[in-house]
Nucleic acid binder design. Sequence first.
DNA 1: CCTTGAAGCTATAGTTGCTAGAGACATTAG
DNA 2: CTAATGTCTCTAGCAACTATAGCTTCAAGG
Lengths: 146, 146
Amino acid sequence: MLTIGKLGAQAGVKVPTIRYYEQIGLLPEAGRSAGNQRLYGRKALERLAFIRHARDLGFTLEAIRDLLSLSDNPEQPCVAADAIARAQLAEVERRLARLTALKAELERMVVQCAGGKIADCRVIEVLGDHSLCSTDHRHPESEAGP
Amino acid sequence: MLTIGKLGAQAGVKVPTIRYYEQIGLLPEAGRSAGNQRLYGRKALERLAFIRHARDLGFTLEAIRDLLSLSDNPEQPCVAADAIARAQLAEVERRLARLTALKAELERMVVQCAGGKIADCRVIEVLGDHSLCSTDHRHPESEAGP
DNA sequence: CCTTGAAGCTATAGTTGCTAGAGACATTAG
DNA sequence: CTAATGTCTCTAGCAACTATAGCTTCAAGG
């Protein structure tokens, strides 16, 4: 039996995250020790590894919830799981396209700044006026990072 | 003079988002009409377009705040703006690499679904066991999004 | 001129996927 | 036995918005 700390270490998931997953129902309520500490077995470790892995691949917790409920009924056809994965793939492809355009734009911006004054600096200019952009990166999806 | 709705339409930003930007100090407080409605001029439109554009390019609001403060004092050297752009470029390149790996992984998963049972489903199987992966996509950065 | 409906206002709370902190109890190494 | 670490619950916070409620203001049609 694993304490929550060992479980987290084995699965590569932080302790508060595990408690969070339990709270939102992604993990079942764990059994407790005499002193009220959570104890986990191999099944919990596998489930958590599944979640961790799917998160690594960019699946949302909602999608993971669906995938888990599918894998809990293994006699059904797997079309649904396939659809979820395909949707994820499409999303990844959209992001790739957008990031590729963005990369080109940033490279252009960086190249053109040669240490002059802001007044001559295209970084600001490019961002202020879309017509100076080489690519069209106008899309409403959120893409913000760290 | 533009009302907030027109401004939003012109800049491609939703109305509540504009009010949010004002609230966090990214946009200055707008002047008001007799009936207490916000009114905007061309300067505000440009500034908002700048923000929208930078968001599209993946800049965080913090980075945008810096860029705006730079462009508000155009006599400074543009080294700082260049540094911001370079940092963004590095970040974008990291994300691109990661997404490319994810895409390969997801394609592999998706290709092999032939309408069988969940029990044999490649998607679930791959998610449950990282050793079935061809690439190492284990990185802690958050990359998810709706 | 008056009404109606869209657009605006404020303020608050919700979203996603965690992360951080406080203060108390449990377990374990020396 | 004590000290250090681990775990407990609970609450609040992060980015960057989005949505709701309940109001006021504005523009256009009849």
